[in-house]
């Protein structure tokens, strides 16, 4: 640190900038701090990826090390092979289908519903909003069995319908979140559009929606991950292994009382982070750009 601040000290005659306010110093401080913290944050993932390259007799005997003594990439094909000829290619296809469609459904529906709650006044609005929040507070565990019987009556067992169709109403979490974002958009814009003759639908599509980019991107990132990671509901409704998701397959690898290929579990667990990570990386760009599209014209 000391070396930096002296070399960076300006030698001009004007009142010197105090060293701790100097841009270079602040930049180094920022990156030093943030990068260290980021490394700590990344440690678990580094460990997971490292362990996925450990041979079977190293996993429990060389547990703390990040790097394997003898790299063993064989874990990946072993895990990828899946079960009895149904490989992870199938599970990835199913998960990608479910997470993509599920995210599209729940995020687009949430935006529509949120606009209704946030910008339209109607009888019963407060009541429905309260009920919507209440649905978040009851653990799924006690709803599963009655729900199972409902979907059974509809003949939808062993299909994706029970997982996808409830999403046509959006998710309470995203609806509430988007409501909060809409409410921080000044109503002047709506009013201006209204004077121009736009109706509610027009206002939603042309005024509100473009401003919601950061919120919708955020919702999409979460929704994809939560859908990708979901296991209790898919476990109950998907019977055929050809329909299993990655999250289910990962839980199907091990048996506490039998033989477990931990290397394969680590390998497939590490790999299963990849799509979620890719979605995040490619979407977070829009979070940064969000500011330019939403920079208010007011």
């Amino acid at each position: 640190m000391a070396a930096v601040d002296y070399s960076a000290r300006p030698v001009v005659v004007r009142p010197p900038t105090p060293w701790h306010q100097h841009a270079v110093f602040r930049s180094i401080l920022y990156h030093g701090l943030v990068a260290t913290a980021a490394l700590i944050m990344l440690y678990p993932i580094l460990w997971l990826v490292g362990s996925s390259f450990k041979p079977p007799d190293e996993i429990w005997t060389n547990q703390t090390a990040i790097l394997p003594i003898e790299p063993y990439p064989q874990n990946y094909p072993n895990g990828w092979a899946g079960f009895g000829g149904i490989s992870f290619a199938t599970f990835y296809r199913n998960s990608l289908f479910y997470a993509t469609l599920g995210t599209l459904l729940s995020v687009s529906a949430s935006a529509v519903v949120a606009y209704g709650f946030a910008r339209v006044r109607f009888r019963g609005r407060r009541l429905w909003f309260a009920i919507m929040l209440l649905t978040l507070m009851l653990p799924t565990q006690v709803q599963i069995i009655p729900q199972y019987i409902v979907f059974k009556q509809l003949g939808w067992l062993n299909t994706f319908y029970p997982l996808l169709l409830p999403r046509i109403g959006g998710s309470a979490f995203f609806i509430f979140m988007i409501i909060q974002f809409i409410r921080s958009i000044p109503v002047d814009l709506d009013e201006a559009a209204m004077i121009d003759g736009a109706n509610k639908i027009g206002i939603f599509l042309r005024v509100i929606l473009p401003q919601l980019t950061p919120a919708i991107i955020t919702a999409a990132i979460f929704s994809f991950y939560w859908t990708w990671d979901e296991f209790l509901v898919p476990l109950i409704y998907l019977n055929s292994p050809e329909l299993y998701l990655v999250s289910l397959a990962l839980r199907t690898f091990s048996d506490p009382s039998g033989q477990t290929d931990w290397g394969a579990i680590f390998a497939m667990s590490a790999l299963s982070l990849l799509p979620v990570f890719v979605i995040f990386i490619s979407f977070q760009r829009y979070l940064v750009e969000g500011i330019s599209t939403t920079g208010l014209k007011g």
């Binding site: 199972y148 059974k152 296991f231 209790l232 476990l235 109950i236 839980r251 199907t252 690898f253």
Partner: peptide
């Protein structure tokens, strides 16, 4: 097929249905 814990969660739900 499933893991040990999930087996019972799933099968008892199926039993009720």
């Amino acid at each position: 097929f499933q893991g040990w814990g999930d087996h019972w969660t799933k099968l008892s739900t199926q039993a009720a249905g």
